[in-house]
Simulated scan of single mutants.
Amino acid sequence: MITGLGNVTPLSGTQALLPEAGTARSTTGDAFSEMVSELATNTVARLERAEGVSLQALEGEADTRAVVDAVMSAEQSLQAAIAIRDKIVTAYLEVSRMAI
Rank of each mutant, 00 (worst) to 15 (best):
G60W: 04
L47I: 12
G29H: 00
Q15K: 11
L18Y: 15
Q56H: 11
T90Q: 15
M35G: 13
E34G: 10
R65T: 11
E51G: 14
G13I: 00
A99K: 14
A50R: 01
T14M: 13
N7P: 04
T27V: 09
T43S: 00
D69A: 03
V44L: 02
S96R: 14
T41Y: 01
A57N: 03
R85E: 03
G6P: 04
S96M: 14
E94V: 09
I82V: 15
I88E: 03
R97K: 12
A31V: 07
E51A: 12
T43R: 01
I100F: 13
R46W: 05
A66Y: 02
S33G: 10
M72I: 01
A74S: 09
G22S: 04
N42K: 12
F32P: 05
T27R: 05
A83C: 05
V71G: 02
T9Q: 09
V53S: 03
N7I: 09
A66W: 02
V8K: 07
S12A: 09
E20Y: 15
M98W: 11
K87T: 05
E20C: 09
A66C: 05
S96Q: 11
S12C: 14
S54I: 04
L39N: 01
R25K: 02
I88D: 06
I100S: 06
A40I: 01
T14S: 13
A45G: 04
I2H: 13
D69M: 00
D86L: 13
A66T: 05
G13Y: 07
R65Q: 12
A91Y: 07
T43K: 00
E61L: 09
Y92A: 10
V67C: 00
G13A: 06
L47R: 00
G6C: 12
V36C: 10
G52Y: 10
A91K: 08
P10M: 07
G13M: 02
Q15I: 14
I2N: 11
V71E: 03
V71R: 00
A91T: 09
N7F: 07
Q56W: 13
E61K: 10
I2E: 08
R46C: 05
V53E: 00
E59K: 14
I82T: 13
L93I: 09
F32I: 05
M1S: 11
E48V: 00
T3M: 12
L5Q: 07
V68Q: 10
A74C: 06
E75K: 08
T41S: 06
T41N: 01
R49D: 06
Q76H: 06
